[in-house]
Simulated assay, not measured.
Amino acid sequence: MWKTIKRIIFIVLILNVLFIVWGRFFNPPITITQIGGFFEYGKLHRDYISYDEMGNNVKKAVIASEDQKFFVHDGFDYKAIEKAMKNNEKGKKLRGGSTISQQTAKNVFLWQGRSWIRKGLEAVYTFIIEKTWSKDIILERYLNSIEMGQGVFGIEAAAQYYFGKPSKDLTISEAAWIAAVLPNPKKYDPKNPSAYLRKKHNWIMRQMRNVSLK
């Protein structure tokens, strides 16, 4: 019995290592979140593109919105985590503090949710991809896999869905609209923005001036 358990653990570890190595060179064939989106909305709009094909505006917009320290941290924003923990103590909810690297680990390897088990696994995968992938690869995987609407995944599909153009041709304003739906793309819609979304859109455009892609 114990030999069988050890064999299963070994196989799982090997498969994880192979998947991480695979992810260094290729986008994921499909993710758990994408499968969930397909069953929930009956569609899966997704179009993987390379880092160079994405254009700078959408990269800057998402970094401005989600993780302005992306290129300087080691995968974790400890000040943001500390702030999130204080909020959790007050509201007793797991909220915020996730970097783009952490979100990439979650989107590519794991599932959505707020359990401590998932957060623990997310931390492990984040540490590993920060050591084995480059920042450009992490950002590419993130921008290709992130949920951007109901059944819409990745910035290329989002650019086509919301504005009918490739992501590399998005204006600063259009890129900021796409980034503004994060982290709740099922709730917010750039085609019908709320007052809050308009405010966030304007804030992102201002923050984009301070974002460098290195």
Rank of each mutant, 00 (worst) to 15 (best):
W111H: 07
I117S: 12
P29L: 05
W116M: 09
I63F: 04
Q102P: 02
I129S: 06
I81S: 05
K79W: 04
L110W: 04
H45D: 14
F76L: 13
G96A: 13
N27A: 15
G96P: 01
I129C: 04
E66Q: 13
S101D: 07
T99I: 06
F70K: 01
F71D: 01
A80Y: 03
Q68Y: 11
D47Q: 14
K59I: 00
I63G: 05
R114I: 03
D52I: 01
Y51Q: 08
G75V: 11
Y48G: 00
I117M: 13
K131V: 09
I30N: 04
I32E: 03
R95C: 04
A105I: 05
G97V: 07
T126A: 10
K83D: 10
S115W: 02
H45S: 14
H73G: 11
E40K: 15
K106T: 06
E122Q: 05
I100L: 10
I128T: 08
M54V: 00
Q103I: 06
W133Y: 13
I32R: 08
S65L: 05
A84H: 05
G55W: 03
R114Y: 12
A123L: 10
R114N: 14
D67A: 10
E122S: 08
A61M: 02
N88W: 14
V62T: 00
Y51R: 04
G91I: 10
T104R: 08
G91F: 15
I35G: 08
K92N: 13
F76Y: 15
A61L: 02
N27H: 14
R114P: 02
F38Q: 14
F39P: 01
K93E: 12
G75Q: 09
F39Q: 13
I117W: 07
R95P: 01
A61C: 05
Y51T: 03
S65I: 02
I49T: 00
W116G: 03
I128P: 02
A84P: 02
W133D: 06
